[in-house]
Structure formats: structure tokens, C-alpha cells
């Protein structure tokens, strides 16, 4: 009896400590992320502009902001561009990243070190990466065009970020370079966890390397592949810095994406209500994908 009373007390104490450690961070995140998300939904129903804030009152206008943004062709352009950018980036990052991960899974002494070195581009500020690629892709003085011309891949320099036809491709190239190490690293972690004896028994069975890849490697790292594709989607879909710095959404609106469009509406033209509405559309797209992700990994990860 006495003993159980003591352990209840100890349990209470550990609860107090547990929450004491966790709650400050949780409250901080709820205050600076949770509350703003709800506030953002509210703002998207208001006719909020710089002027209405100055007057201290913004009218409730229901879904009008959503109607307005979807009547604007720039919104459709931004939606299309965001999906185009995300899907192509993921495709290239994943394929090249997977190739590199497979190569670096070979056992040689410098593998770990050189693989680590490749990650540096991923850690660099996106603003610097954006300017660097703007420079390298530039039609005059840009190294990419110089190489393409000297290899006779093109007669005259491609305008890349300056032409509305190629601008999204230029952004995809720049972002793919940043994303490759991320994909490589996550897939590498998956490959490292495959027990070596599985391959050994397969090679005794006479499996060719292609078969080994399809029937052993891929199923064994299914989880990693799934994670990297979905995380890639989430991180790529919300692109802002790269587009904002490299093209500013231009020429005209040729490279506008959802996040830059939302930013421009809120902080360039001060239509806060419409900017919030665009951000919510972005959120809904991400939310659907995040739900799939959590449903898929939630059971294993959170325990």
C-alpha cells in the first residue's frame, strides 16, 4: 500500500518534469505557428489591405478573396509553375541522388568523406545559390552557355532565366543541384541499413545486379524512398528564396510560384486578404501530401 502510494507520487513527479521540459517549446511553436495558421484562415475571409489596417477595421467578405485570386490568370500560372517545378525537381533529384547513393554504398575508404563533401551545396544559403545560378545561366558571361556553345549543343546562348519559355527549366536546374545531396544522403542511410548477407545469399542464387537492384535493394529501402519523395515534395513545393532572388517571379509572371505570388500580394501590393488566401491554397496542397506521409510512416516513427 505504502509502496504504491510512493510510486504514484514518483509518477506524478516524473509527469511534472516531463511536461516541464516539453511545454515551453510546444507553447512557443503553438504561439508562433499554430495560432498564425488559424489567424491566416481568418484573414483570408477579410477585405484586409494596408488601408483597412490603417482604419482599424477590415470587412468580412466571405470567400471573395478566393474568388478574386482564382479569377486572376497569375494564380493559375503560379499553381501550374509550382507543380511543374516540384515534379521535375523531384524526378531529377531522386534519380541522380539515388545513383550517387548507390555508388557511394560501395565499400571504399574515401566514400564516406567525399559523400559528405557533396552536401555542402545543400547547406549554403539559398540566396547565394540563387545568385550563383543566375550568374552561371546568364546569356553573357555565364559558364553554362559558354560550355554549351563550345560543345556545339547550341549556336547561340540560351537565355534561361530571362526568357519566359526557359525560365522554369533554369530554376529546376538550380534547385536540382541543391536537392541532389539531400536525396543522396537519405537514400544512403537506407542502403547502409541493408544487411550484407542478403546480397551474399542472392549472389549465390545467381542473381544479376539488375535483378538484385529491383528485387532486393528497392524493396529493402522502400521506406527511405517513400520518405525522400514526400519530404522532397514538401520542401520543393514551398520554394520561395530561389525564385524570389533569381527571377522575382519574372519575366512578367512567367516563373511566379504560389509562395512568391502570396508574398507579392501581401507585401508588395498590400492585399493581405488575398495573399493569405493564396497561402492557404498552398497549405491545402501540402496538407494533403503531409497526411499521406504521416499515415504511411506515423505508425513506425511515433512510438
Amino acid at each position: 500500500m505504502k509502496r504504491s502510494a510512493l510510486s504514484v507520487k514518483a509518477k506524478d513527479k516524473s509527469l511534472i518534469y516531463g511536461y516541464g521540459y516539453v511545454l515551453p517549446a510546444l507553447i512557443f511553436m503553438l504561439a508562433l505557428i499554430g495560432y498564425p495558421i488559424i489567424y491566416n484562415i481568418y484573414i483570408s475571409f477579410l477585405d484586409m489591405t494596408a488601408q483597412s489596417i490603417g482604419q482599424g477595421h477590415s470587412d468580412y467578405i466571405g470567400l471573395q478573396n478566393y474568388i478574386t485570386i482564382f479569377q486572376d490568370s497569375t494564380m493559375w500560372k503560379a499553381l501550374y509553375n509550382t507543380f511543374f517545378f516540384t515534379i521535375l525537381c523531384i524526378l531529377f533529384q531522386f534519380m541522380i541522388g539515388f545513383g550517387l547513393a548507390l555508388f557511394f554504398s560501395k565499400k571504399f575508404r574515401a566514400a564516406r568523406y567525399i559523400k559528405g563533401l557533396l552536401v555542402i551545396g545543400y547547406m549554403m544559403p539559398m540566396t547565394v545559390n540563387a545568385l550563383l545560378w543566375k550568374f552561371m545561366l546568364s546569356p553573357s558571361g555565364g559558364i553554362i552557355n559558354s560550355i554549351m556553345v563550345s560543345l556545339h549543343l547550341t549556336d547561340q546562348p540560351v537565355e534561361w532565366l530571362m526568357s519566359s519559355e526557359t525560365v522554369m527549366w533554369g530554376l529546376v536546374i538550380a534547385n536540382t543541384w541543391v536537392g541532389i545531396p539531400f536525396n543522396m544522403l537519405l537514400l544512403s542511410t537506407g542502403l547502409d541499413n541493408i544487411p550484407a548477407d542478403i546480397y551474399e545469399s542472392a549472389s549465390i542464387d545467381g542473381a544479376k545486379s539488375v535483378q538484385r537492384f529491383i528485387y532486393i535493394t528497392v524493396p529493402m529501402i522502400k521506406q527511405s524512398i517513400f520518405s525522400v519523395l514526400l519530404l522532397g515534395f514538401v520542401y520543393t513545393f514551398k520554394v520561395f528564396d530561389l525564385v524570389y532572388v533569381a527571377t522575382g517571379g519574372g519575366p512578367v509572371d512567367a516563373s511566379e510560384v504560389l509562395s512568391t505570388y502570396s508574398y507579392n500580394l501581401s507585401f508588395k501590393t498590400y492585399y493581405f486578404g488575398q495573399g493569405a488566401a493564396v497561402a492557404n491554397v498552398l497549405f491545402v496542397c501540402l496538407f494533403v501530401v503531409a497526411l499521406i506521409y504521416l499515415a504511411a510512416i506515423g505508425k513506425d516513427e511515433v512510438n
Binding site: I33, I37, I43, S266, A290, L294, V302
Partner: peptide, 20 residues
């Protein structure tokens, strides 16, 4: 789960409210 999800959210989503 809250921490997991907040890590994924885009800055654009909280930008206007945080500004206000």
C-alpha cells in the same frame, strides 16, 4: 506529431499573420 508537422510548413503561410 505537432513538431513533425510544424517543421514542414511553408513560411508564406504564417508570414502575414506574424507580420500583424
Amino acid at each position: 506529431l505537432t513538431f513533425l508537422v510544424t517543421q514542414m510548413l511553408p513560411a508564406s503561410l504564417i508570414l502575414t499573420p506574424l507580420f500583424l
